[in-house]
Nucleic acid binder design. Sequence first.
DNA 1: ACCTGAACACCGTTCAAGT
DNA 2: ACCTGAACACCGTTCAAGT
Lengths: 220, 220
Amino acid sequence: MTTVRRRAPARPRRPYHHGDLPRAMVQEAVRTIQEHGIPALTLRGVGAQLGVSRTALYRHFTDKQALLGAVAAEGFRLLSAALVAARDGAGGGRPGFEAMGTAYVRFALEHPSHYRVMFGGVVRSGDLKQLSVPKVDVDAFQVLVDAIVELQQKHLIVPGEPRELALYIWAVVHGVAMLALDGMLPPQVPADALMALANERIRSGIAVSPAAIAGRREPR
Amino acid sequence: MTTVRRRAPARPRRPYHHGDLPRAMVQEAVRTIQEHGIPALTLRGVGAQLGVSRTALYRHFTDKQALLGAVAAEGFRLLSAALVAARDGAGGGRPGFEAMGTAYVRFALEHPSHYRVMFGGVVRSGDLKQLSVPKVDVDAFQVLVDAIVELQQKHLIVPGEPRELALYIWAVVHGVAMLALDGMLPPQVPADALMALANERIRSGIAVSPAAIAGRREPR
DNA sequence: ACCTGAACACCGTTCAAGT
DNA sequence: ACCTGAACACCGTTCAAGT
């Protein structure tokens, strides 16, 4: 690992008080991760950027982990807001459902730092549950479950335990998002194209005919 | 981040030569990550565990990154082997295809350290291409593409660019694997149960009827 | 192809003492 | 609710000099 240098030209330091240091710390953490990646995130660096002593940070977050947890929590809040907005913007129903998938992937691409912290194995899932905002990671998932229940009531999608179906859908969009973030997608297939294809396949599957689906015939 | 202590009781150190130090380093790295997570991986620690000086490691890997890259490469090799074995074990065709999905998720759960390094954003995808084993990350993907081409030729799955379809399938299994590794699955829905459900949905989709799929009717 | 030992520029975290 | 300054126990990486 090459030693990272980030001795930024520290901003003019106002003496005492900072308005909202916790908030500023989260913002600075996100910015640092955006530009240099998670390993480059350093409490000392955050302090320097904010013109605040390193020890001051411990007034607001007990840990580096706690700071990362706050980033994750903010991410989950932004994510569920984005999902709700997409669903309502498309007027609910099946269009709303597909818009949520697209919005999910878009969120990951537009907030890669948040997303990486949320799902990169950096924050232990246990830590997340103890954040000030309760059940923050459940909210985004609940939006998805609600949408599925709605479509099931309209008989637009198959019956079955909505939470299990939601986990499946989550896996698809999460997979698309992660592959995109990791640069695994070839240039000919950008993330939104893959998500469009995925929406099509989520809807109708890949089997070639209903007969084949039910296994009533065994072609060839 | 709590300071990690790993001063293990260094093994009896044979003077000089180690048989296969590079291989031993990769093994030790995997073991460390397994037990203490990626952040706890330390070149100094690896050296200590192997009874070898820290500087000796640089004879074989230019970097900590390079060591992680070797872990990723080994993971991709193991993964494609597991996929091929699963496919052949199920006799190819659609059963083979679904067995691959199950095997993929199982691989991630059985080799979480490899998998996390492969897809955790730790190894830059560029680095992977310059490893001694060429196109190592492409192989596993190619196994999937081949399976899709086979099923398309038998008219068992829909036509279309096989590589795009393969990316979709990859996203699904990758998503299931990541959610499972991150502890996002509720205890009532273990990874293999979710993957079984996913196989069903991959096949037949979630839309309630062919008419609804084609959008020829607009129920309710 | 390995070793020792020293060094450099970093980390997270804690403490004592201030305003 | 912030500050300074010192300290402790770590890092990755490099270098010089050996066998």
